[in-house]
Design a protein around this nucleic acid. Sequence first.
DNA 1: TGTGTAAGTAACTACATGGTGCGTTGTGCG
DNA 2: CGCACAACGCACCATGTAGTTACTTACACA
Lengths: 219, 219
Amino acid sequence: MPLEKSRASSSTKKRVRDAEATKLRILEAAKKEFARNGLEGARVDTIALDAKANKRMLYHYFKSKDGLFRTVLEREYLNIREEETRLDLENLPPRTALETLVRFTWEYYIANPEFITLVNSENLCQAAHIRNSPTLKTISQKFVRRIQSLLDRGVRENIFRDGIDAAQLNITIASINYYYFTNRFTGSVIFERDFTAPEALEERIAFNIETICRLVCKN
Amino acid sequence: MPLEKSRASSSTKKRVRDAEATKLRILEAAKKEFARNGLEGARVDTIALDAKANKRMLYHYFKSKDGLFRTVLEREYLNIREEETRLDLENLPPRTALETLVRFTWEYYIANPEFITLVNSENLCQAAHIRNSPTLKTISQKFVRRIQSLLDRGVRENIFRDGIDAAQLNITIASINYYYFTNRFTGSVIFERDFTAPEALEERIAFNIETICRLVCKN
DNA sequence: TGTGTAAGTAACTACATGGTGCGTTGTGCG
DNA sequence: CGCACAACGCACCATGTAGTTACTTACACA
């Protein structure tokens, strides 16, 4: 946020003009619109309208539709990694830490359904927006290292199997949770059940925790 | 195909007009275009051009862009289920059958990368095109029943654990394979490896088979 | 209190889009 | 043969699209 300025409390004085607030409103509206309709399906006019901002401001702050998408996506990645960091896996017993991680992923997708659709859009265009993002690479490295050290700790304590690759495990944890949500509409047709019904959700998260524990834990 | 007609061998006489062939060319071009750019990103002009057909024919045969997408998608679902049926899982030992199924799913996604993107598009619009497809429901039921009977057989032979739900297992098998491919672009950035390198593919399919066997098999 | 600068607006443009009206031509069949 | 109909082609339309031009207005700071 290079434009950040020192400024008196916003409650004491009503601001008609507020660059930061406008930017945030645009980003929130963009997140919704991009998530709902995809990158190509999203309409900049809709975003501007929903953000109660002029379309010109959108181009002023983010250069282009793609620039806006890039910013939205990067913020979303930062957000999930940040929340993940707060899990404090380091101070939990390995098996509990693993379960916590799986459950966190699951609950994050429920609480942030936009994340999945945004990532899908980014993959449709072959990661064109984040391909060269050093920020993303840095936080991702940190993330993989954390899981690797959890695995190592579990092996030392003779609870986890040896030789499991942290990246593969991460991918698997993400996949069994992610797929269920991203394909919940075709899934509900194919399997003739409501994927978002509370019982269905309960059953699935239990199944997923079982899957990961059987993969990683001894016995 | 209600317009199917009896007709002499196409090799004996050059046909300038061939409705079936034109339809197929349109469907193939549409599959490519929809898979590459998504439903909203796809251009009907591009499809017509690539199919070497006039745009008018596209609307004549498929009514609308959405009608075309629906047809493409339904054909893709029929195709994967048909190939799956040919696996002859019934006559393999349970564990081999399970591994065969996982490997088939994996290889199908490699050979038919369009399938994944088309399904993603359909989920972006909340399965609007296939929601009321009785064909799809019928073949899906058959598919789930086949897996359930494989599970039952494995339990009877004391090789599989009891109480595993066929739908959950199906979802998990699909997810660990599907996710890897659909998110290979962002994945390659995040994990700093080429997801499509031969060694990476080898490693992943081995990991996936291990995951499923550990989930389903005893010991 | 005046002023430079950044926030904000409205009306526009150039063009691409999905979809059609209507005319032409090849062909299977009586 | 000749005719009815299906396959096909061209030119067009109304609308929606990302992006821009030229302008006004609020506010921080001197």
